[in-house]
């Protein structure tokens, strides 16, 4: 199944994320693709809201991964700093992706061959300074 949205500002991107988070099921993995500054972390914040997490979600670029406890556990990854997949060898992120919580990965292309097949893919594209096209592809119908 595929959905396409056009958002006019970060608040609307956040809202799309919130709906995604509310619908997310335990074990879901959401891969968010998009250039710097398109709103990946904003969408992730929305997903966290939808999962019932009240804490501030900050960019995990430096730490690579953060864990938040809500109604469901939220595993937030950012692979921006990963240049080659070998660098993931000692990090064992796959163990989290198989877990009960909901995982969100920003810059998932840095780990493309390791991602589970059953994943929700989100593409954020820049239209202009304010608008973004958000395409969501579900592995099921």
């Amino acid at each position: 199944m595929k959905e396409v949205f056009v958002t006019n500002n970060p608040e609307e991107t956040l809202k799309i994320g919130k709906i995604l988070g509310e619908k997310a099921r335990e074990g879901d993995l959401i891969a968010i693709y998009g250039d710097l500054g398109t709103g990946k972390t904003t969408l992730s914040k929305g997903i966290a809201l939808g999962l019932g997490i009240s804490e501030d979600i900050t960019s995990p670029t430096f730490s690579l991964m953060e864990i938040y406890k809500g109604q469901k556990t939220f595993y937030h990854f950012d692979l921006y700093r990963i240049e080659s997949e070998n660098e993931l060898n000692n990090l064992f992120f796959e163990e989290y992706w198989e877990k009960d919580g909901v995982s969100v990965i920003e810059w998932p292309e840095r780990a493309s061959s390791r991602l589970p097949k059953n994943r929700i893919e989100v593409f954020i594209e820049y239209i202009n300074d304010f608008q973004r096209r958000i395409t969501i592809e579900y592995p099921y119908n």
């Binding site: 921006y80 700093r81 000692n90 990090l91």
Partner: peptide, 11 residues
């Protein structure tokens, strides 16, 4: 070369 800290190299 990597525009950031690469964890495996780092550790």
């Amino acid at each position: 070369d990597y525009s950031g800290v690469v964890p495996e190299i780092a550790s």
